[in-house]
Computed example of a mutant assay.
Amino acid sequence: MSRIRPHSAVARAGGLLIIGLALTACSSGTSQEQREYAVPERFCGTAVDRDGLAALLPPGKKLTTREKYLDDKKLTERCDIQVDGKLVVRTSREWWPKKESTDWFATGKTRNDLGHQADDGRFLYSDYEAFGKTENCQRTTGAYEYAMFTGIQAYSSEHRDSNAMKDLIIHFTEAVEQSSDCD
Rank of each mutant, 00 (worst) to 15 (best):
E67T: 14
K99C: 03
S126L: 10
A54I: 06
G85H: 07
R50L: 08
R122H: 03
V83E: 00
Q117C: 01
T46N: 01
P59A: 15
L70A: 11
D80Y: 09
K86T: 10
G52P: 02
N112E: 15
A130C: 10
V83A: 00
L114K: 02
N136T: 13
V39Q: 07
G45R: 03
T46R: 07
P58Y: 06
Y69K: 03
T91H: 02
T64N: 13
E135N: 11
W95T: 06
G45V: 03
K61G: 07
K99L: 04
V89G: 02
E129K: 06
D80L: 12
L53P: 00
D120S: 15
D72M: 12
G115R: 09
R50F: 00
G132M: 11
L124P: 04
L53A: 03
T91E: 08
F123D: 00
D71V: 09
E67L: 13
E41A: 15
T64C: 04
I81L: 09
R42I: 05
G132D: 14
D72P: 04
W104P: 06
K68H: 11
Q117E: 15
E135K: 14
D113K: 11
E41L: 10
D49V: 01
K109N: 14
R50I: 14
T102I: 13
R111I: 08
V39G: 09
T91K: 00
L75K: 10
K74V: 05
T65P: 05
Q138V: 10
W96H: 12
R78I: 14
H116K: 15
R42Y: 11
S101H: 03
Q82E: 11
L87V: 05
T91W: 02
F131I: 01
F131G: 01
F123I: 07
R90F: 00
D113I: 10
D113V: 08
F123E: 00
K62H: 14
Y69T: 09
G121C: 13
G85L: 12
K133G: 09
G108P: 04
Q82T: 13
Y69V: 08
V89P: 06
V48K: 01
A118S: 15
E129T: 03
P97W: 08
A55F: 02
R50D: 06
H116G: 12
D113Y: 08
E135D: 15
L114S: 10
A130G: 15
G85T: 12
C137N: 03
D103H: 13
V89M: 01
G52C: 05
K61N: 15
D80P: 07
K109A: 15
T76H: 13
